[in-house]
Computed example of a mutant assay.
Amino acid sequence: MDKLKLKNLYSDFRPDIELIEKELEKSLESDSPILREASMHLLHAGGKRIRPVFVLLSAKFGNFDLSLVAKAAVALELIHMASLVHDDVIDDSDMRRGMPTVKAQWNNKVAMYTGDFILARSLQYISSIEDEGLHQALADTMIEIVKGEFIQIEDQFNLDQGIRDYFRRIKRKTALLIASSCEMGAIAAGAEQKVVWRLKRFGYFVGMSFQIVDDILDFTATEKELGKPAGSDLTNGNITLPILYLKDDQVAGPLIIKALNGSISDNEMKTLLQYIRSSDSLKKAKKISDLYLQKALLEVENLPEIPAKNHLKQIALFIGKRKF
């Protein structure tokens, strides 16, 4: 039902999305069979294409030119894809979206070079747009993403962290790229500066909500929906908001430590997942996600009255309420 709803939300600009999808395939062509196959492997694993959609919708608030906007959309989605390949190496993840990761299908070296190749392709696409502000926005985003990767490595398996550390991490891991998608779409279309800033703030708040929901779903969704085992973020050492609320709990705390050090049994993992689902940690995390979502919707309310405004609102609400 959720997937059908998402397709319906995209239906009004489906031709634009299909063009971007074709451009993504074109961008990943390579003379190297392994490089091409590894890159296409990730692309064909699917994805919600949230970032390209936000680029497209944000560009509607200026002088929309699909040929320019598509380049920005492809560049941002490629950066996202590259970060996923690198993330899977860092987390030693074998599954993503129900398929083997690039590092599992091949090896770590192939995965790292594939991520580098995808990132380089992103720079090729954005360099064809003659706008210094756009280039600067992308460069700033990429720097922050790399900082985020290092923060994630530093925080991995470390229970001695607080909620502020978590927010700092997901800001760079997810929120900034979505914020940049909105910002760069508006810049590419020559939107007014105040509109650019409002869209960027909207994207940031949506991105924070999006990642918190993702972290909740890691405990509540099925393996089929997640494309990986439930609770795998925890076993990979990623301390998310629900875990931060439970790390000092007398029942959950010892099991969380076991999950992090790799000594938890299958039955103990089932017990931990059941305990997390019945605790109020998920409700607390959802409340924080909803607060970010409300901030995003407030930014939308002050945007010009065009059809894209309602689309932004609908997709933001979907992100906050999604079940997969």
Results as ranks from 00 to 15, higher is better:
Lys3Asn: 12
Lys3Trp: 01
Lys5Asp: 13
Leu6Ala: 09
Leu6Gln: 12
Leu9Pro: 04
Phe13His: 10
Phe13Leu: 11
Arg14Leu: 15
Asp16Cys: 05
Glu18Cys: 02
Ile20Phe: 05
Ser30Ala: 14
Pro33Ser: 13
Leu35Asp: 09
Glu37Tyr: 02
His41Trp: 15
Leu43Tyr: 08
Gly46Gln: 11
Gly47Arg: 06
Lys48Leu: 07
Arg51Ile: 07
Phe54Thr: 00
Val55Met: 01
Val55Arg: 02
Leu57Asp: 11
Ala59Asp: 00
Gly62Ile: 04
Asp65Asn: 15
Leu66Lys: 12
Leu68Met: 12
Lys71Phe: 07
Val74Pro: 10
Val74Asp: 08
Asp88Ile: 06
Asp88Lys: 05
Val89His: 12
Ile90Trp: 06
Asp94Arg: 13
Pro100Gly: 00
Ala104Val: 02
Gln105Pro: 00
Asn107Asp: 15
Ala111Thr: 06
Met112Lys: 00
Phe117Ala: 10
Arg121Val: 02
Leu123Gly: 00
Gln124Thr: 08
Gln124Ser: 13
Tyr125Leu: 13
Ile126Asn: 04
Ile129Gly: 03
His135Ile: 12
Ala137Thr: 12
Asp140Leu: 12
Glu144Met: 11
Ile151Thr: 15
Ile151Glu: 12
Ile153Lys: 10
Glu154Lys: 15
Gln156Ile: 11
Asn158Gly: 01
Leu159His: 04
Gly162Trp: 01
Arg164Val: 09
Phe167Met: 14
Ser181Pro: 08
Glu183Val: 02
Ala186Gln: 10
Gly190Phe: 09
Lys200Ile: 03
Lys200Trp: 01
Arg201Ser: 13
Gly203Gln: 08
Gly207Trp: 02
Gly207Glu: 07
Met208Phe: 09
Asp218Met: 03
Thr220Glu: 13
Thr222Glu: 12
Thr222Phe: 06
Lys224Glu: 15
Gly227His: 03
Gly227Asn: 08
Lys228Phe: 08
Pro229Tyr: 09
Gly231Leu: 05
Asp233Leu: 07
Thr235Phe: 00
Ile239Thr: 08
Pro242Val: 06
Pro242Tyr: 06
Leu246Thr: 05
Asp249Met: 02
Gln250Met: 05
Leu255Ile: 07
Ile257Cys: 04
Ala259Gln: 03
Glu268Ser: 03
Leu272Met: 08
Tyr275Thr: 10
Arg277Lys: 14
Lys283Cys: 02
Ile288Val: 15
Tyr292Met: 10
Glu299Lys: 08
Ala308Asn: 05
Ala308Met: 10
Asn310Ala: 12
His311Trp: 05
Leu312Trp: 12
Ala316Leu: 04
Lys321Gly: 04
